[in-house]
């Protein structure tokens, strides 16, 4: 057993929320899979046919060393290679805000997958709003821990921004789950104004309409 392989329930809670949305035995593409912790979990406990794309070679090597099917690639450029409908789920976990073309990526995800699962930090959380209002400075919070000049997150959005884009693209929001900074589920619907105020991060299950 590899050191980072952990027993059930041992993955980060926000990853667990994503994993729980995936039907057993399905075909999954994890975009920005890192070392493949979620993929490994899905392989072990959901018996999926799982693949991954990861930008950092370090992450790719670790994933492949652990027997996962992962390629080095870039979400911004490489999703277009895949044929339409090749996967049941395309997952983008905590990566959307770091891509150059989030809109194109969302479109691509729902072209190659029947469903997409997207998680991202919520810029609309009250702490972020308050920091901007009171201090007039770009928010730095637990889920958004970078200064403006060194952040990889070049396309922050609020939950309301995200759902507006989904509407524009004609995507159906099947589920929206609000999470706190620890990844624990909050009771508010992520897509509601309360969710946008109180969720530090969110996970959305999308499908084509």
């Amino acid at each position: 057993m590899n050191a980072w392989r952990q027993p059930r329930g041992g993955i980060r809670i926000d990853l667990q929320v994503i994993a729980d949305m995936v039907e057993p035995g399905s075909r999954v593409l994890d975009v920005g899979c890192g070392e493949g912790i979620l993929l490994d979990y899905l392989n072990q406990f959901k018996n999926v046919d799982g693949r991954g794309i990861e930008l950092s070679m370090e992450g790719v090597r670790a994933a492949v060393r652990n027997g996962l099917s992962v390629i080095q690639g870039d979400a911004d450029t490489d999703l277009k290679d895949y044929p339409s409908g090749a996967f049941d789920y395309v997952i983008l976990s905590q990566t959307l805000q770091a891509t150059r073309q989030p809109r194109v990526i969302l479109e691509q995800m729902l072209r190659i997958g029947r469903r997409a699962i997207v998680s991202f930090p919520n810029f609309g959380h009250w702490k972020a709003r308050l920091q901007l209002l009171v201090h007039g400075r770009m928010p730095v919070t637990e889920t958004m821990g970078y200064q403006w000049y060194d952040t990889p997150n070049i396309h922050f959005c609020t939950i309301a921004d995200f759902t507006a884009l989904c509407d524009e693209l004609g995507l159906k929001i099947e589920r929206g789950i609000a999470l706190d900074s620890q990844g624990r589920i909050r009771k508010q619907n992520a897509g509601s104004p309360q969710g946008n105020l109180l969720a530090e991060q969110a996970v959305f299950l999308l499908s084509r309409t």
């Binding site: 046919d49 693949r51 070679m57 790719v60 090597r61 994933a63 492949v64 996962l68 099917s69 992962v70 390629i71 080095q72 690639g73 490489d78 290679d81 895949y82 044929p83 090749a86 996967f87």
Partner: peptide, 18 residues
């Protein structure tokens, strides 16, 4: 090769070793 395998939705790992 990897791009072509992706286009065929093949099961592929790809590593560039330093």
């Amino acid at each position: 090769i990897v791009h072509a395998l992706n286009a065929a939705a093949a099961n592929v790992s790809f590593v560039e070793v330093e």
